[in-house]
Design a protein around this nucleic acid. Structure first.
Lengths: 279, 279
DNA sequence: TTGGTTTTGAAATATACATTCCATAAAAAA
DNA sequence: TTTTTTATGGAATGTATATTTCAAAACCAA
C-alpha cells in the first residue's frame, strides 16, 4: 500500500493544517517532509504560486507537491491551495502597505544593503505577530529557573552568547554549554529539575543540540527551544518552542529577528525575576 | 479609437495603482469604473480569484475585467493580478490575529514584544539609509586581508561570534581575539600589515577594545570599527567606521540592526573574495 | 543478496483559465 | 434622423496549469 492517506477529512483551516503537519510530519516520506516544512514556513508562497514555481523553490518535482496534497486528503493541489489562500483573505490594506514601505525604495536600484534590511524587517514584522503568550510563558520559566543552561552552535552561537550576556545582566545565573559532544551530554545529565535548558538551533540542525534536548526532556528538565521551524528536531511537545523565520538573502539567513526575540525574552524574564524578588 | 490605453508603463506597485485609479477613474467607461472601485476596495479578491468569479462578484462580464487591465496598460489580467498578489506576499497567517496586533500597535497598547519589534525595525530602517559606499569599502578591505582579527566584548560579543562564523563560511581566515587584557595587546602587536582588525564596541566602551585599536593604528594595520557613535573611542580618522544606532527599549539596546549590518558586510566581503579568486 | 513495497521523477493528458474575436448595443457626432 | 465611434457581452481559441499515469529508483524485510 502507498503511504497512508489520512482517511479523515483534511483540515479546512490553515491553523489546523499547520498543527497537523507538526504532529505527523515525522511519519511522512522524505520529500513530503520537505514540502511540509516549506509549506508551514512559507504559506504565502503556496497561496500565490503555481505548482511549478513552488516545486522549484523547494527543490522537488511537481508531482511530489501534488502527492503531498493528496496524502493529506485533499482533492488535489488546488484544493489544498485554497486553504492557504483563505488564510490570506480580508487582509487590511493599510497594513500591507506599511510592510512594503521599504519595497518602494527597492523598486529600481536597491543596494545590496537595502535588500538585507528589507529581509530583516520582514522577519521582525512576521515575528511580532506571533503569540505573545508563548513568549511570556517562556520568560516566566526562565525567571523561575535557578540556573539557565544555554546550548547553541554555529549560526546559533551568537544567540547563545547574547542570551548569556543578557540573562546575567538581568540577574539570572546562566551558563553556556561548551565542550566535546560526549562531555556535553554528561553535563546535561547533571542538570537538575530546578534548572533548565535553553536550546537554540537552526537548519541544518546540529546533532549535539538535539541530543541535549533529548537528555533533558527524558529527565523532566524544562526546555525552551528557539528554532526556525516547528518541524525542527528540537521542537518538542514537552518544550516551549519559539519559532523564527529569517528570510534568505544571497543564500544566507540573518539573525536580526532572532536577536530581537532574544532581547525581548531576556528583558521579560528579568522583569519577572524582579517581581519575584521584591515580594 | 477605443478608450485610450495609458501609454506609459502601468504602475508596478499596488500603492501607485491605487492612487492612479482614484485620480483617473472618472474618465473611465462606466463598467470599467465599477471594476476600478471594486479593485481598490477588495484587492484580496483580485489577487486570489479567477477572472470568472471576480466578474461575477462585480456583476460584469469577464471580458470587461480583461479590458480593464489592458486599459491600464497591463499585458493582460494575469499581469495586473501579479501586482495585487505582490502586495500580499510575505503577509501570512492568522489574519484575525494579525489585524488585532496591528490595532494594538497603533493604539499604544503595544505588548512589550511589539515594542521591541518596532524598535528593531526602526533601527534597521535608519541603517538602510546610510551610505552604502562605506560598507562596500569595508567589504573590500575585509576581502583583501589575509587574516581578519575580530575584537568585541560584552554586548558586542555576539557580533564577534557571528562575524567570525560568517567570514569563515565565506572563505576568509578569521580569528576572534580572546584572553587577558595584557595578552590581547601582545597578540595585537603581532598583527601584520597584510592582515587587519575588525573592532566592535558599544557604549559603555570597553577599554580593552580601545587599546587594540590604538595598537593597530600605530602599526599601520587597517582597522574597521563597528560602533554606536562617531564619538566612540574606537572611531578614528584612520579607520573605516560603521555607525549603528539601536533604539532603546526598557533601558536596553538590541542587536537586530547590528546583525543585519554584520550579515551584509560578511556577504559582500565574500563576494569580493570570490571575484578575486576567479581572476 | 532477492523479491516485494514504497517512493520518486518525467512525460502524457485533461482541465481550467485567460485571451481573442466578432457581432451587437449604446453613445456621440453629423 | 443617419452615420460614425466607442463600449459591451458571449462564444471560440489557445495557453498555462493541475492531474494522471507509468516506469525507474530507493527502501526494506526475509
Amino acid at each position: 500500500m502507498q503511504h497512508q492517506q489520512s482517511k479523515q477529512q483534511p483540515p479546512r483551516a490553515f491553523r489546523q493544517l499547520k498543527s497537523w503537519l507538526q504532529e505527523h510530519n515525522s511519519t511522512l516520506p522524505k520529500r513530503l517532509q520537505s514540502v511540509a516544512a516549506y509549506a508551514v514556513s512559507h504559506p504565502d508562497m503556496i497561496a500565490l504560486n503555481t505548482i511549478a514555481v513552488i516545486s522549484e523553490q523547494i527543490g522537488v518535482t511537481p508531482s511530489t507537491i501534488f502527492r503531498f496534497a493528496k496524502s493529506l486528503g485533499y482533492k488535489g493541489f488546488s484544493d489544498m491551495q485554497s486553504i492557504f489562500q483563505e488564510s490570506m483573505r480580508h487582509i487590511s490594506q493599510p497594513y500591507a502597505e506599511r510592510i512594503h514601505s521599504l519595497d518602494r525604495q527597492m523598486s529600481q536600484k536597491a543596494t545590496a544593503f537595502q535588500r538585507f534590511a528589507i529581509a530583516a524587517n520582514r522577519a521582525i514584522e512576521k515575528l511580532s505577530q506571533t503569540e505573545t503568550q508563548l513568549l511570556l510563558q517562556a520568560s516566566h520559566k526562565l525567571a523561575d529557573a535557578n540556573i539557565v543552561y544555554i546550548a547553541g552552535q554555529d549560526r546559533a552561537a551568537p544567540v547563545s552568547v547574547y542570551l548569556h550576556y543578557m540573562l546575567v545582566k538581568m540577574g539570572m545565573q546562566a551558563v553556556i554549554l561548551e565542550g566535546t559532544p560526549s562531555m556535553l551530554v554528561d553535563k546535561a545529565k547533571l542538570i537538575s529539575a530546578s534548572e533548565m535548558l535553553l536550546a537554540i538551533s537552526f537548519s541544518p540542525y546540529s546533532v549535539n543540540t538535539r541530543e541535549l534536548v533529548d537528555v533533558c526532556i527524558e529527565q523532566q528538565v524544562s526546555v525552551i527551544s528557539i528554532t526556525d521551524s516547528t518541524l525542527s528536531p528540537i521542537a518538542r511537545r514537552d518544550a516551549i518552542c519559539l519559532e523564527i523565520i529569517e528570510h534568505e538573502v544571497a543564500g544566507f539567513r540573518g539573525l536580526s529577528a532572532t536577536m530581537c526575540l532574544a532581547q525581548c525574552l531576556a528583558v521579560e524574564a528579568g522583569k519577572c525575576r524582579a517581581n519575584m524578588n521584591s515580594q
